[in-house]
Amino acid sequence: MSKGFQDCAFSVSMIVIGAWLWWEAIQPRYQTSAAQDYGFSPTFLPRILIGMWIVISLILLIRSFGLWSRRVSGSEWKTLGLFVALVFAYVGLMTQIGFLFSSIPFAICAMWFMGFRRALPVALIATAFPLAVWYGFVFILKIPLPYSPWFSQI
């Protein structure tokens, strides 16, 4: 993609997000009485910030039209999308069946997904590392990690 396209896409998104947040900031729920806010509403500063970034995004947008020809490297969307979905699934699973039982499948899937597919090292690392992290955090650092509904600490 070109640098101009980058800047254009970015500035347009920022303007849209800014407009939406501005709309949110002027909702009645943020209106407070003078007794409460000493003269400046809680959305006083947020609105200044949003306004500034919309203005700068406009400048960026205008400037981007002059940069359309400059090239920058691209990236693999599909791979990343799948990977992000995998991570979300991992965290979701972790809330249900605990850290240890979700980390082991995640480690296997992640390594396999990213290209390292030698079965035995994957199996060993995927078991040993989450176990080590679990032990270190729960017993040495005494930071409880999410545990499964079947045991009280795993």
Binding site: S103, F106, A107, A110, F113, M114, F116, I125, F129, V133
Partner: peptide
Amino acid sequence: EPILLALVMI
């Protein structure tokens, strides 16, 4: 790198 990234994620 695949192993490193997986472990860093965890």
